[in-house]
Nucleic acid binder design. Structure first.
Lengths: 259, 259
DNA sequence: CGGTAAGTTGAAAAATCTCAATCACGGTGG
DNA sequence: CCACCGTGATTGAGATTTTTCAACTTACCG
């Protein structure tokens, strides 16, 4: 998916206070100096264009762990780019069913579902203390008409979300429990790696139940499958602390349907 | 989803040769005179704007039953609006897994997945002899910068696709076989009804296997569930010919998880 | 230090899948 | 015109996977 990797980022989940930009007012939000620009909405924009996009990000907003960034039914006004932290999105039906539709980390966009009918169609909940950039959707549409590279980049992001969703459908429709969890973990580590984190050692930000909801499994099945992966020497699991020992083994699980 | 219903359409799956537009050259493709304009990309555009959108639809293309409109990996150049007929889209993984990600009928857009990386990420196959309007994506981006209502409409369509996909995830992740099939049938009849067809009598365009693939079930399970629905008096099933006898009963199946 | 939320594990139940046989239907060619 | 063929659909029975229910452990937070 991501063609451009970010340069070395030592503290990827911390804002770029370290970046030595001379005379920068901290209250001004500027994509041009954000260390997430290679992963976020401004992908592919030239430095010149980037400078003109001051108006894109209205402001920031911090969301403590467990709080909602937005809720199903709420009026849609803005998109949100995760700056630090970790979110889940979930949809629910009239009866109390609940489905986690995704997990979002730094640089990923939240709220695209809201455009369809001017109101949000899912809940977005912070799984740890988080902060987001607030992108006024009106502003984005306006700037998109001016900067075709921004327009195209935004379309790509929406399209990528559709492609991602189709991948989840494949997972939910065709895979057994082990394959689902393996695919999930590989996807997670790939995204973490793109943000400068280790590909093998990670801390899960979500509960077994949330993983299960995303993967269409019960939490007990998720737990059992983790245990099995550990027995098989694929990884070390200590609660939410994971260490991948055999990435190739995981990949084989996903790819070789059953042999 | 659809707020505006089309006026009376007697032959919804036939092009608008009947609409008495004076001095219209039949080779010119014009959204302004298409009877699908209320369901298709130009939703919400004023008559004035619509007239200016001559360039939107490049040309038409007909796709015989069983043929591909586009394939996974193929270069992305255009979106396609279904004019007549019926399509399925499916994604596949390296190992021969295959997942139907959607069924598209008149007025619905195909190819949105291709924007993300300039190549298609799924196959689109005609399930009956079909025809589509070819919408050059470059042209669409250009016109979008000029007409903000087109821009907004397009964004809404992409967003709606994302919302739809999340609904499918809920279905695949949380529902049992009966609920899935009921939800699928209700969705199908709702869309057919929006196009002027009966809400109760329909002919399935896809096989049990294709339904199963979409719903994450094996074809035998789909078949058994149809039989059960028939035993329960919810519908009459004769191969692909369906007659819904108890729509409320189907809705209850979907909504009341298990009571 | 205790209370609570999260995670693990076992055993039985339930849903779905697999494999296999049979049936229905549309098209084709003798 | 009709028998035949192939694809798609149906149905049964047993195997498999996942869920459910329940008991128990672990970690974290005030």
């Amino acid at each position: 998916m991501l063609t451009t990797l970010p340069r070395a980022m030592n503290m990827p989940s911390t804002p770029d206070v370290s970046t030595a930009a001379p005379t920068m007012e901290p209250l001004k939000v500027a994509c041009a100096s954000c260390n997430l620009r290679e992963l976020c909405l401004p992908v592919g924009l030239s430095a010149a264009d980037l400078g003109q996009l001051d108006g894109l990000v209205d402001k920031r907003r911090s969301v403590p762990r467990g709080e909602h960034l937005f809720r199903n039914g709420q009026r849609f006004e803005a998109l949100y780019a995760v700056r630090t932290g970790f979110f889940k999105t979930c949809v629910g039906s009239e009866d109390g069913r609940d489905q986690v539709t995704g997990f979002q980390m730094a640089g990923e966009l939240l709220g695209l579902d809201g455009i369809s009918s001017d109101q949000h169609h899912c809940d977005a909940v912070a799984l740890e203390d988080s902060s987001v950039c607030v992108i006024s959707y009106n502003q984005l549409e306006g700037l998109s008409r001016e900067f075709s590279s921004l327009q195209h980049g935004f379309h790509k992001i929406m399209s990528r979300e559709i492609v991602r969703d189709h991948g989840v459908m494949l997972l939910l429709g065709n895979m057994r429990a082990e394959e689902r969890l393996a695919a999930f973990l590989l996807n997670l580590t790939k995204r973490l790696q793109a943000r400068g984190f280790s590909a093998s050692s990670l801390v899960l930000r979500m509960t077994r139940e949330e993983i299960g909801s995303y993967l269409g499994l019960k939490l007990e099945t998720v737990s059992r499958t983790f245990s099995k992966f550990q027995e098989d020497g694929l990884m070390e699991v200590k609660q939410r602390q994971l260490r991948i020992l055999d990435q190739a083994g995981l990949e084989a699980l996903v790819n070789n349907s059953r042999c």
